[in-house]
């Protein structure tokens, strides 16, 4: 496996100047994490656990206080590489309204390409390509504020995708969406990942995390758990103690195990749960 992102013993603090004397709030405390090319990593953690701060380290928005972050071999501290890094790691945020710049969909998708000075004919091609990828090509001449939340978020993804990044980091992209919007975004994410884009998804929804290839759990500025979803979610008690949850089916099977039923403790998908319960309950 090729290492794509290397986070080496990184700490980070915010300084609060409003307090007198200024106070220091350390949000990351020596985090080390490698992400391989093409991985789909979900990052979980309650509010304030440091996961958004971690995300912003990946494209030089935040620079580590100590330690280093390498993206595709580039150190995020390297100012000459700033735009290369931001083209490599695209970022999508929670509120779709606050990341759309232009008043026409296609103009917004073109924004990043205009910034990096791509030729107009090439911009056209990539904008059309990116809009088709997220299924919003028919809306290219629409005004963004008239679209649904899920559609707006797909425009935001297209705007990042147009840069042809190797990795997309999403900070709770579905938090403000309805179930339909969430489904649309999850589908787009899995499709992109299957085409080789590395995905880092920060989320509060356990069912979304269960679909990732790997789950990283953060707590109090440190990495608490890191592994396959099955492995991570089998630790239901630990997760609950840090303000997180497990998928409903995991909760159910763990309850049954406690009641003395013989079931594996790493059931995280609906299909698996149905199958197991069926085996258990079917008539002989």
């Amino acid at each position: 496996m090729e290492k794509f992102i290397e986070i080496k013993d990184v700490s980070f603090s915010y300084i609060n100047d409003y307090d007198d004397p200024p106070t220091k709030n350390t949000v990351l405390k020596g985090v080390t994490l490698d992400i391989n090319k093409g991985e789909f990593v979900a990052v979980l953690g309650h509010n304030g656990s440091g996961k958004s701060t971690l995300a912003k380290l990946l494209n030089s928005i935040n620079l580590p206080e100590s330690g280093d972050v390498f993206v595709d071999g580039m150190n995020t501290r390297d100012e000459d590489k700033l735009y290369d890094i931001r083209r490599t790691v695209g970022m999508v945020f929670q509120n779709p309204d606050n990341q759309i710049v232009a008043t026409v969909v296609e103009e917004d998708v073109a924004f990043a390409l205009e910034n990096i000075g791509v030729e107009p004919s090439e911009i056209r091609k990539r904008v059309d390509w990116a809009l088709k990828k997220v299924g919003m090509y028919e809306y290219r001449e629409h005004a963004p504020h008239k679209l649904s939340g899920g559609q707006k978020q797909r425009i935001a993804i297209a705007g990042v995708l147009a840069m042809q990044p190797k990795c997309i980091v999403m900070d709770e992209p579905t938090a403000m969406l309805d179930p339909i919007g969430r489904r649309e975004i999850m589908q787009t994410i899995t499709e992109l990942n299957s085409e080789g884009v590395t995905v880092v998804l920060i989320t509060h929804y356990m069912e979304e995390a269960a679909r990732a290839g790997r789950v990283v759990v953060m707590d109090d500025g440190k990495i608490l758990l890191d592994g396959a979803p099955k492995k991570v979610f089998s630790q239901a008690e630990l997760l609950k103690s840090v303000g997180l949850d497990v998928p409903d089916v995991t909760d159910l099977t763990h309850g049954l195990i406690r009641a003395g039923i013989d079931l594996p403790d790493d059931i995280i998908s609906e299909d698996e749960c149905v199958e197991r319960l069926y085996q258990l309950l079917k008539k002989e």
Binding site: P179, E207, P247, D248, V249, L252, E270, C273, V274, L277, Y278, L281, K282
Partner: peptide, 18 residues
């Protein structure tokens, strides 16, 4: 709309003949 995950699980079990 989505129904809770457990609801879906048991609807499917019913459809399978439980």
């Amino acid at each position: 709309l989505t129904v809770p995950q457990v609801t879906r699980v048991f609807d499917r079990l019913r459809a399978m003949g439980i």
